Simulated scan of single mutants.
Amino acid sequence: MANTSSRTLRLLSLLQNHRYWPGPELADRLGVSVRTLRRDVDRLRELGYPVEAQRGVDGGYQLAAGAALPPLVIDDEEAIALTVGLQHAAQSTVAGLAESSVRALAKIVQVMPARLRRRAEALGTMTVPVEWGGRTHEAVDSDVLTTVALACRDTERLRFDYTSGDGQHTGRHVEPYRLVRGRRWYLVAYDLTRHDWRNFRLDRVGAPRRTGARFRPRELPAADAAEFVVDRIGRMPRPYTVEVLVDAPAETVRARIGRWSTVEEIDDDRCHVHMTSDSLDWPAMAFGSIGAEFRVVRPPELVDLFREWAGRFSRCDAEIDARD
Rank of each mutant, 00 (worst) to 15 (best):
D75V: 07
D75M: 10
D76E: 09
D76L: 12
D76A: 14
E77V: 15
A79P: 00
I80E: 02
I80Q: 05
A81F: 06
L82Y: 09
L82M: 12
T83R: 05
T83Y: 04
T83D: 02
L86I: 09
L86T: 03
Q87P: 08
Q91I: 09
S92I: 10
V94P: 04
G96L: 14
A98K: 06
E99T: 15
E99Y: 13
S101Y: 05
S101F: 14
R103M: 15
A104F: 15
M112R: 00
M112N: 01
M112P: 04
P113E: 08
A114R: 08
A114Y: 08
R118D: 13
R118L: 12
A120P: 00
A120D: 00
A120S: 14
E121D: 12
G124V: 04
G124A: 10
T125K: 10
T127K: 05
P129Y: 11
V130H: 07
W132G: 06
G133F: 01
G133N: 08
G133S: 09
R135S: 12
T136V: 14
T136R: 10
E138W: 10
V140W: 01
V140H: 02
D141Q: 10
D143A: 14
V144Q: 10
V144D: 01
L145T: 06
A149C: 02
L150W: 01
R153V: 06
